[in-house]
């Protein structure tokens, strides 16, 4: 088990180094930070002096290792746009994004799994058909459109929920949370639905397809022949057998939700890293963009590791000893 985790962590290192190279390449080759900093009129001496000060006159590999070293210490440089350390900017904004992403995913999973199980058990029922048609909409409508439509309905027409921002937040040490105030929770509703909608429909369709498949299997027929209760069969035996692919998709989607909450955060002016990223792109704020890239890489690698560990927990057939250690 520990060997397995270590092996997976070792595999993650090259991935993160590759992401680091790309992030670093952005620094070096996208745009010209010196030009941006010095403005229109400058002499070659000015330029050389600034390049030396910033270490840009050193060989690429030296710069790369310095970049990596700093990144490992949480130092991603200073934002060109805001003039604050990138790490500070992220620390301020990450809680907002994580709270949004986790709420969206929890919401999606809580709705999608029962709905998918239902649609898998009674595929011909009226409700199942409605769910499937509805889910097609969820899969095919672009996120920003869902967000705008929700704002139109619930903020503009009905006036029930706020259309932007995070509401009042509470500071808990380094973390700011919107979970503890009413206005924070109200502000969370629409963005979470918007962000979770695609995930919800995807998981629901997957659970349904897997349930249909599993319910045809011999062990379900045998479970019926043993006289087990329908509840036990559907939720104990069938659902658990659908979990491996479902966990994979939930994991990948959670990564996707964290990484690409950009659109939702823009629509709802949600003060998270996605919005920060969009603002940085507009300003060619490369240190922020590079750090964002690394962050997304770390999130994906971490989630993949957790997903692999969950496979282990779900499916005993994967817990086979390695050759030589077997019985």
């Amino acid at each position: 088990m520990i060997v397995f985790i270590l092996a997976r962590l070792l595999q993650a290192i090259p991935v993160l180094i590759a992401v680091g190279v790309i992030a670093f390449a952005m620094f070096r080759y996208v745009g010209d930070p010196i030009g941006a900093m010095l403005g229109q009129d400058y002499s070659d001496a000015h330029r050389a002096e600034l390049m030396h000060k910033l270490g840009l006159d050193q060989p690429a590999y030296v710069q790369f290792f310095r970049f990596l070293w700093n990144a490992l210490h949480g130092n991603f440089g200073i934002s060109y746009r805001v003039g604050e350390p990138v790490a500070t900017l992220f620390a301020q904004r990450l809680p907002a994004t994580l709270e949004l992403a986790i709420t969206a995913t929890v919401l999606a999973v809580l709705v999608a799994i029962p709905a998918g199980v239902y649609a898998g058990i009674w595929p011909r029922s009226w409700v199942s058909r409605a769910l499937m048609v509805g889910s097609l909409l969820g899969v095919s409508l672009p996120t920003f459109l869902i967000g705008v439509l929700l704002i139109l309905a619930f903020s503009v027409q009905l006036g029930w929920l706020p259309s932007f921002g995070r509401g009042h937040v509470v500071h808990l040490g380094f973390w700011t949370t919107g979970f503890l105030t009413l206005s924070g929770l109200r502000a969370l509703v629409l963005p979470a639905i918007t962000l979770g909608m695609f995930e919800l429909t995807l998981i629901m369709r997957l659970v349904r397809a897997e349930m249909l498949e599993v319910l045809r299997s011999d062990y379900i027929k045998f479970a019926r022949a043993r006289g087990l209760r329908a509840r036990t069969i559907y939720f104990g035996h069938a659902l658990k057998n659908t979990l491996v692919p479902v966990i994979t998709i939930i994991g990948l989607q959670l990564g996707g939700v964290v990484a690409y909450s950009v659109v939702t955060e823009t629509v709802f002016q949600w003060p998270g890293v996605g919005l920060l990223f969009i603002q940085s792109v507009a300003a060619a704020d490369i240190p922020v963009m590079a750090a964002y890239l690394l962050l997304v890489g770390v999130v994906f690698v971490t989630i993949n590791l957790v997903v692999d560990l969950l496979y282990y927990a779900v499916d005993p057939r994967l817990r086979v000893e390695r050759p030589g250690h077997g019985r």
Partner: peptide, 25 residues
Amino acid sequence: MRRIRGRRIGAIFQDPLTTLNPLYT
């Protein structure tokens, strides 16, 4: 009918490789 299955009429199926749920002891 469910109460009868297993309690009063048992069933044995053809392929033992697929009739047991792989995820439970």
